[in-house]
Design a protein around this nucleic acid. Sequence first.
DNA 1: TATGAATGAGGTTTCATTCAT
DNA 2: GATGAATGAAACCTCATTCAT
Lengths: 195, 195, 195, 195
Amino acid sequence: MAKPNGISKQELIQYAKQCLVEKGTEKFTLRAVADTAGVTQGTIYYHFRTKEQLLLGIVEDNCETSWQEISKSNTYVLKQAIASAKSRCSYDSFFHQLFILITAASFKNDKIRYQLSEIIQAENQALSENLLKIWSESPVKGVSMDTWGIMFNAMVDGLAMQALLQKDFPVEKVYQELEQVIGVLTSFGKKEAIE
Amino acid sequence: MAKPNGISKQELIQYAKQCLVEKGTEKFTLRAVADTAGVTQGTIYYHFRTKEQLLLGIVEDNCETSWQEISKSNTYVLKQAIASAKSRCSYDSFFHQLFILITAASFKNDKIRYQLSEIIQAENQALSENLLKIWSESPVKGVSMDTWGIMFNAMVDGLAMQALLQKDFPVEKVYQELEQVIGVLTSFGKKEAIE
Amino acid sequence: MAKPNGISKQELIQYAKQCLVEKGTEKFTLRAVADTAGVTQGTIYYHFRTKEQLLLGIVEDNCETSWQEISKSNTYVLKQAIASAKSRCSYDSFFHQLFILITAASFKNDKIRYQLSEIIQAENQALSENLLKIWSESPVKGVSMDTWGIMFNAMVDGLAMQALLQKDFPVEKVYQELEQVIGVLTSFGKKEAIE
Amino acid sequence: MAKPNGISKQELIQYAKQCLVEKGTEKFTLRAVADTAGVTQGTIYYHFRTKEQLLLGIVEDNCETSWQEISKSNTYVLKQAIASAKSRCSYDSFFHQLFILITAASFKNDKIRYQLSEIIQAENQALSENLLKIWSESPVKGVSMDTWGIMFNAMVDGLAMQALLQKDFPVEKVYQELEQVIGVLTSFGKKEAIE
DNA sequence: TATGAATGAGGTTTCATTCAT
DNA sequence: GATGAATGAAACCTCATTCAT
């Protein structure tokens, strides 16, 4: 019964994340979080005024994580981003399950919903900038770089969602062919914008 | 006190759908469904053995709806599909909210999860066939028509998710530019497959 | 979906008995009985005004069965009765489970309780008479034949209850030794009553 | 609104026992227990994870009570045990009603069933030892002391069950005559074992 | 005669939240 | 700071019973 006293907000959030994915939205109870963290429910209430505050904490944390990754990936190139996306594209993806679960919860919580949109827009922006690095300009006339970022991000999330549902989703094949498409677009971009 | 109102399973499912989107996963209670439908909770249990069965009923219903639309869209062309996707791409989209909610629920229910994957694969397939009609062959060498279907569907869902979260998501702009991209790909496909 | 119309009260009681033992008091619902009998709940209400009436029907039926066996066993001798008791002395004994279940229910239903007592007294009486046949008079002075009947019946039920609870209850051994005891008492009875 | 009344598991079990006998299996609801104990239903669930656990708690409690009595009775003699059994042999016996109710419940719960069998076997054992004290050896050849314990216990339970059902069961008479029988057996035992 | 849709009261259970310690 | 006993509202679910057909 060793009591590792002094649990931090941050730690609680990590445990809560774990719980959320392990138990799903339905069974995501404060009791479960407390058990996972090895503390009592009272302790959670010492750190978060309500359950909603805890959920918000999770989202904020994800937000920060995302920002860090994005700023990192700014220094790398697109390949890195794709590799990362591919690795998260699976039936058991913690990351995307969490995202879907929070998205589902966000429909009834405007604050969370807004934060999620901020995260996504930052991702879109970062992707757009990365694409610019390898394309220098949009390979298709009339399609802005912003839109390429949006579409790229949408594609990655959309594929992830399919993989999340379909056990034998052909991740390898699809990502390989997706890179093919990007390659072709890149080669056009380098020649001239296509009308 | 039995009043044979004559409510059908189908009607209950419709009311349940309405409830699910109006109240969100968290507040999607059988009492709420019962109230919405104007029956007692017992009545729901007469038609569905558990809440989960009701949820499954909703999914199955969506499945059938999807199938019908897909078989319809086979006779139409891709433009139709895009228009439909665009119309569903909004901050308040009942359709996509329901989908996300069910997806979230599916993580803890393999049966639902499997059914969802079936729906998606059917959509992918239908899209692939429609693309073939206007492309006759894949515009990018090494990218199978199946993959085009998958990617197209992923894109549509990904965009919808963004629109769901971001109030001022530029639906018009993005879809217009997406069509631009498709147009370009089509023109390539008509010349020759690109290496 | 062949509907064997015209189910009788008697048949319903048999199905109800089966249900009671298969599902236990707790899950002994009219729905379960109806399902077992292949009819609807309404049908049960056609034959029995309430659930209690059905339970009473079961008890009455058992009563009649008992009477029949008792009057039969009057013609046979004690050995028969013992063999029958032994065969019913097991971990899975339908007969005794039913008896315990009904006894439990009887605590809140005086009518049932009274009927059960009538059954038992009849059994006691029959046993007493059978003992008289082989003993001609009580082998122990001061112990009436009525009491022997009561004690014998109590012993049989008590052993059955133990067997009902204990998986490896040594039925064979105990009954063999019980017969030994009876044998000894009999031999005394034949010599002279013991003081 | 948390009022630390400080109700203990033990107390809850006592209240539950009271409820069980007062209301019978059918009406043995957690609401009733909560009301009797003066707490809310939630409180019960704080102490017992399910209703079944509470029932198990009752059984375990009875188990311990039995053990205590048994170990006590080891120091006393058989007369004590008989007197105790007789006092519990009545139409309203809390003790035996509880036992029957739990036995009925045990048919659907192997854990409870097993515990009951353990209690009974301990009783059998204790009785056998006590009989040995006054008999020194089995008064009937071929009948082991273990079996005497089993039979004695069965007799006591069987008589109790009859008394439970029959309002005017002749407790006094039967127990007096039962002691007579034991006396006779004892006197044999002292002479020599009977063949 | 029998059915099956519907009811409503009440059961067990869960859970965010409170508060004395 | 942290705990854990307690709450109470509300969730899911069951079931005897009713009644139009």
